[in-house]
Computed example of a mutant assay.
Amino acid sequence: MKDDEPYVLDDPDRLKALAHPMRRRMLTHLNVHGPATSTTLGELLGAKTGTTSYHLRQLEKYGFIEEIPERSTGRERWWRRAQIPRDMRLPTPDQVPAEDRAVLEEFHRIGYEEDRVLFERFPAAYQADPAWARGSRGLARMTRQDLDAFYEEYIALLLRYSRPADEAPPEAARCTSASSPCPRTRADLRRPSQRVTAQVSLLSVNRLGGDASPVWLTR
C-alpha cells in the first residue's frame, strides 16, 4: 500500500487501541515532537511511568509506534511513530460489528473534544498572528456525489501540503485543519449556532503550542 492511499481503520482492536485520550496525546506528541521515552511522556502528561509504559506497549502491539533499538539502553526505551498510512480513515457505523460500535462512538467523542479545544483556541491564535490562523465557513448546495468529491479533494489537498518533518523547510509551522460538512435542516435556521446543509467549516490553526489529532486520521 502506498503512503497516501486511503486505509480504513476497521479492525476493532486497533480502533480500541486509539480510543483512549492518553494514547492519543502520546501518539500526537511522538508525531509532532519526535521520539520520547515513557519517563518523558509521563512528565509531560502528569502520569506515572508504569502507566505510560503500558499505553506505549498497547500502541506498539497494534502497529502505531515502534521502539528505537539503537537508542534504547537498559530499562530506558525510546519510541517513535511507526510508518503508517497518512490517509487513515475511520469506518462508518455499518462497517463495524454492532458489539464494537461503542468503541467507534468513543473514538468520535474524543475527536470532537479535541476539535472543540482547537476551535476555542482559534480567536487567540488569530489575534496573535492572523497570517497563521485562517478560518472559513460557508454554505453550499451539494449532492451526495458532490460532497464525496469535495471530501476526497480536501484530503488530497491536505496530503499535498503536509510535508514529512525531514522535508519541511525551517520556516514551516505545525498546523491542524478540520472540516465538518453536514446537511442543514429547517430546524437549523432557528438555531444558527448549530453545525450546519453542506456547510463546510475549514479551520487552520498554528499548532506550535498544543496537541491535536494527527492530520492523517479522518472521519
Results as ranks from 00 to 15, higher is better:
residue 86 R to L: 01
residue 102 A to D: 13
residue 70 E to G: 09
residue 129 D to S: 09
residue 87 D to L: 10
residue 67 E to G: 03
residue 67 E to T: 11
residue 71 R to S: 08
residue 75 R to S: 15
residue 127 Q to L: 15
residue 110 I to M: 04
residue 78 W to D: 09
residue 81 R to N: 06
residue 138 G to E: 11
residue 135 G to N: 08
residue 69 P to C: 06
residue 108 H to K: 04
residue 126 Y to I: 09
residue 123 P to W: 11
residue 105 E to L: 11
residue 120 E to I: 03
residue 60 E to I: 10
residue 116 R to S: 09
residue 126 Y to M: 12
residue 99 E to Y: 11
residue 61 K to F: 08
residue 121 R to L: 02
residue 72 S to R: 12
residue 68 I to R: 09
residue 138 G to L: 08
residue 120 E to Y: 06
residue 63 G to E: 14
residue 120 E to N: 04
residue 120 E to K: 05
residue 94 D to E: 15
residue 71 R to N: 07
residue 123 P to V: 15
residue 71 R to M: 12
residue 93 P to R: 06
residue 101 R to G: 05
residue 136 S to C: 03
residue 91 P to I: 09
residue 116 R to W: 03
residue 67 E to R: 08
residue 125 A to L: 11
residue 112 Y to S: 13
residue 74 G to E: 04
residue 117 V to I: 12
residue 131 A to P: 07
residue 77 R to F: 06
residue 58 Q to H: 00
residue 90 L to W: 14
residue 107 F to L: 02
residue 117 V to Q: 13
residue 57 R to G: 15
residue 127 Q to P: 01
residue 134 R to V: 11
residue 117 V to N: 10
residue 109 R to M: 00
residue 129 D to I: 00
residue 124 A to M: 13
residue 120 E to G: 11
residue 83 Q to W: 00
residue 81 R to S: 01
residue 85 P to W: 03
residue 71 R to L: 13
residue 135 G to V: 09
residue 124 A to V: 04
residue 91 P to R: 14
residue 56 L to F: 14
residue 135 G to E: 02
residue 126 Y to N: 07
residue 62 Y to S: 07
residue 60 E to S: 07
residue 131 A to M: 13
residue 74 G to H: 01
residue 98 A to H: 15
residue 99 E to F: 08
residue 131 A to S: 14
residue 81 R to M: 11
residue 54 Y to F: 10
residue 64 F to S: 12
residue 136 S to T: 11
residue 96 V to L: 15
residue 114 E to S: 02
residue 88 M to G: 06
residue 88 M to T: 02
residue 80 R to H: 04
residue 116 R to A: 04
residue 121 R to V: 08
residue 113 E to P: 03
residue 100 D to R: 15
residue 73 T to Y: 02
